[in-house]
């Protein structure tokens, strides 16, 4: 299933709801979408990942991009991720710079 995403920015919290699979075929356009956040007053980026079924390395790199480019102090959250996605995040070591939550707690 292709990636679908929805982005809202409220009070410095960018909430991005993801569904489907985030891989090399769609990571580029998704990253372009994230670039729109550059220069805006973003404190937190929250990936709502309940319906994300698969993430490949290209997808993980988009999350790294979010952390590194959108703002030095921005906090990244991964919320409600399925086990398969969470596994990949943990095994590749990305769990150290994202806050992983079941429900977004802020």
């Amino acid at each position: 299933m292709d990636l679908q995403y929805k982005m809202d920015l409220n009070d410095g919290i960018a909430s991005i709801t993801l569904s489907g699979s985030l891989d090399a075929t769609n990571a580029g356009t998704f990253q372009e979408e994230l670039k729109k956040l550059i220069g805006q007053d973003v404190k937190k980026i929250v990936f709502m990942a309940k319906d994300l079924t698969y993430i490949a390395s290209a997808g993980l790199r988009v999350m790294i991009f979010a952390k590194q480019r959108i703002g030095a102090d921005v906090q990244v959250y991964l919320v409600g991720a399925q086990e398969a996605v969470l596994d990949v995040v943990k095994m590749s070591g990305l769990d150290t710079f994202m806050t992983i939550q079941k429900e977004f707690e802020g």
């Binding site: 490949a56 390395s57 993980l60 596994d87 990949v88 095994m91 590749s92 070591g93």
Partner: peptide, 20 residues
């Protein structure tokens, strides 16, 4: 040797293992 080998992420998995 990587659980993520099927995603082409063996380098990240190995690096993360070494780091830990």
């Amino acid at each position: 040797f990587a659980a993520t080998g099927k995603f082409g992420m063996q380098a990240d998995e190995l690096k993360n293992t070494i780091k830990t």
